[in-house]
Amino acid sequence: MSPALERFFVTAARLCAVAVVAIAPLVGLVVFAAAVASLVRHVEFSWDASAGLIAATLALGLVGATLGTALGVGAALYAVEIATPANRQLIKALVGALHAVPAVGYGVAAAGLLLVTPLLPNPAVTFSIAATVVTVMIASVVFVQMRRSLSALPDQLREAATAAGADAVATALRAMLPALQRSIAGIWWASFALALGEATALQMIFGAASAKSALSNGVAISGTLASMLLQVGASARGVDEALRFAPAALLLFAMTIASVFLGRRAVGHVPWP
C-alpha cells in the first residue's frame, strides 16, 4: 500500500469515526435548541403533566433493568454452567429467538395481554404488564451479553473450582459470579439506559392513535417520555406542535446519557449499547 493510499484510508476512517461520534452531540444540540425555542416562542408545555411521565420512565427503567438483569444473569448461569448440553442448546436457541423478536412483536403481545385482562383500568395492572414486557426484552439482551462474558472467562477458573471440589452450581456461584461482579454491575447500568429509551413496546400497549384506541382509557400510568414522543411524532402537524415536547425529549436524552456516564463512573465499564 502506497503512503498516499494509507493516508487516504486513515483520513476516511478518522472522518467516519468523527461523524458517528458527532451523532450524539448533534442530536443533543437539536433537542436543546428546540427546548430553548419552545421557551422563547412560549409554546405550551406543562411540567405538571410531565411529572407523571418522568416518574413512570424512571420507575419502569429501574424495574425493567433490575428484574431483567437478574433474570438474564440467572438464565445465562444456568445455560452455560449447569444445564445439560441438550438443554443448553435449547435454551440458547429459544432465548436467541426471543432476543430477535422485534419490539413491535413485544408490543403486539402486550396489547394481547391487555385485551384479555379484565382489570384494565387498574393502573397497577397496566404498569405490571408494561414492566413485564420491558423485563423480558431486557432479560434476553442481558442473557446474550452475560453468555458472552461467561465464555470469555478463562477455562482455568472453572478447572480450579472443579479441582477444589466444587460442583457446577458451586462453580457458578463461587467462581463465575464473583469474577463477573463488575461486568454484571455494568450490564445493569446499560440495561437501565436501554429501558429508559425503550418505547415501542409500551407504545403498542396503550395505543398509537390513543383517541381511537379501545385500550387507551386509564392506561396512561404506563406512558413514558419515550412513548409520548412517539405519539407526538405520529401526530405532530407543524413545528410548534412538535416543539411542545422538546423539554421532555431533552430530559430523556439527558437521563440516558447520564445513566451511561454514572455507570462508567461506578463500574468503569458499561458493555453496551
Binding site: V21, A24, A190, G197, A199, L230, T256, I257, S259, V270
Partner: peptide, 8 residues
C-alpha cells in the same frame, strides 16, 4: 453514541 434512544 449507541446509548442515545432511537426515539430521540
Amino acid at each position: 453514541v449507541g446509548s442515545v434512544p432511537t426515539v430521540i
